[in-house]
Simulated assay, not measured.
Amino acid sequence: MRVLVALGGNAMTAADGSATPAAQIAAVTTAARHIATLVTAGHDVVLTHGNGPQVGNLLVKNEIAASVVPPVPLDWCGAQTQGTIGFILLNALDRALTAAGSDRRPAAIVTRTLVDRDDPGFTRPTKPVGRYLPADEAQTLIAHGQTWEDRGERGWRRVVASPEPLEVLDAPVVRALLDAGMIVVANGGGGIPVVREPDGSLRGVEAVIDKDLGAVVLAEAVGAETLVIATDVENAVVGWGTAQARPLGEVGVGELRELAGQGHFASGSMGPKVEAACRFVEASGHRSVITSLERIADALDGNAGTVVRPD
């Protein structure tokens, strides 16, 4: 089947969250071995990935150099991380596929995602990015047009828009490569956010798109039959952190919506993954899976993870 795998941040960094080049290469190498098992099982695979730690590193460089050179805009940061992560994924996938005896090869696409130029997030940004800074350093960046908020004792933090993804503009290229037998890396970080101007031209914007919601839009566009959201736990859990905690196995999308409405999934962690899984199932009529990277092959066979099915 055609499978879209959304790799979480844990697949891009070391276990302690460090994002040194060596740590990223090691983590991606491990991820590639798991992806290769899907390819050798006969699946068409498209990958998307998070980029939070990598963009965070670029923002630190922006901050340090802000008094010397203008900061690189956030859409450029997204493009740079798509290129860098795509590069190390290509190398890792080449090695893993060769070791698995497969002659299929990967490709990476710098990918744009269309958002609404009138999305309310652009007038009321709320998504925090980067690190906390003292007021004087934040003021330097505010002078460059960025929005920063005073967060009290911890300092100031930048906030940006997090608009809804509407369309993956480069999906036709991704689909053509999939049809040609390639394993495709695309839409990293939810895609580079762009808006369409009244004259029809496109313009990059300072925003962050949720990676899992962007994965849904891409999955629909390329005709994926399963969306796999790979994270650092094997299942979504009801009652997380309580004595009544229980992992979810197979679950209907309606029941999962009810559980989400009851507040079982934290907005900063499992919540967006559950929302993405529900959106895909509701829009496509196919299933979605939330599980750990190590269990994705088992999850596709129905033997692991939280499998979300149509009602």
Rank of each mutant, 00 (worst) to 15 (best):
A100N: 10
Q146W: 12
S18V: 00
H264L: 01
D94G: 00
M270W: 14
R257E: 15
E164K: 14
S201D: 12
G83S: 04
P71N: 06
D298M: 01
R279P: 03
G214T: 05
D75A: 11
G285Q: 06
R196W: 09
S162W: 12
V46C: 15
F87H: 14
I183C: 04
R104H: 12
P272Y: 13
T242M: 04
A19N: 10
V60G: 10
M270P: 06
W240Q: 13
S201K: 10
L4P: 04
W156Q: 01
E220H: 11
V129Q: 08
Q146S: 12
V289A: 11
A135L: 01
G241P: 09
D212H: 13
V46L: 12
Q24G: 02
D232G: 01
E275T: 15
G263R: 07
P125S: 04
G190I: 05
D119Y: 01
R2H: 15
S269T: 00
G101Y: 05
V68Y: 06
E250K: 13
E258A: 14
M12V: 03
G101K: 04
V3H: 15
N91G: 05
P71A: 09
I209C: 10
L114Q: 00
R175L: 13
G9I: 02
V68D: 12
R287D: 11
L213C: 02
G271T: 03
K61L: 11
I109H: 09
L259Y: 04
I183Q: 10
E63F: 08
V253P: 07
E282G: 09
A207P: 15
L256K: 00
I88Q: 09
Q146P: 01
A207L: 08
E294Y: 08
S267L: 06
P120R: 06
G181W: 10
E282C: 07
A299W: 07
I142K: 07
S288K: 05
